[in-house]
């Protein structure tokens, strides 16, 4: 009896395990998101520095640490945070430039695409060439210049 139950449960679990593979919910193309982008990593490193600074402040108030140590460490933490902040801004600027270039490329492509059907269709065989060409990709007859 129990043996039968074990078999039934095992079969049910097979379905349970296989189900995500068969589901058509997301075309099966959904990609695992990254856990940490470079920007996020820089940010969390800054957070750590801030944490360190907060602790340093607390240690000074608790008189655990001497004034000279405090000043020196605080300065170097600040410098570290500033360096990380500069890197972040650099990255952002970089990605802004990337975005600009991407937009430009996309716009150009769209323009080309919009123009394509009229200019690259072969008059002889009727084949619609996807890119600007001198000769038809299907029958080889010369095409008029765009």
């Amino acid at each position: 009896m129990f043996l039968g139950l074990v078999f039934v449960i095992a079969a049910a679990l097979c379905v349970f395990v296989a189900y995500p593979l068969l589901s058509t919910q997301d075309d099966g193309k959904a990609v695992l998101p990254v856990d940490m982008t470079p920007a996020a990593d820089l940010k969390r490193r800054r957070m750590v520095v801030y944490d360190n600074m907060r602790d340093l402040e607390f240690e000074r108030q608790a008189k655990k640490i001497g004034e000279t140590d405090y000043q020196a460490l605080r300065e170097s933490y600040r410098a570290e945070a500033a360096r990380l902040m500069a890197a972040s801004q650099e990255l952002e600027r970089g990605s802004a430039e990337d975005r600009f270039i991407e937009n430009q490329v996309a716009a150009r492509r769209a323009r080309v695409k919009a123009a394509a059907p009229a200019n690259y269709a072969c008059k002889k065989c009727g084949f619609n060439n996807p890119v600007p060409v001198k000769y038809c990709g299907n029958c080889g007859s010369p095409l008029p210049k765009a």
């Binding site: 800054r46 801030y50 600074m53 600040r78 410098a79 945070a81 500033a82 360096r83 902040m85 500069a86 801004q89």
Partner: peptide
């Protein structure tokens, strides 16, 4: 690299 005041301000802000 001399620490930029603007960056330092951003740091203080974030903190």
């Amino acid at each position: 690299p001399p620490v930029d005041d603007k960056i330092l301000a951003a740091v203080e802000d974030e903190m």
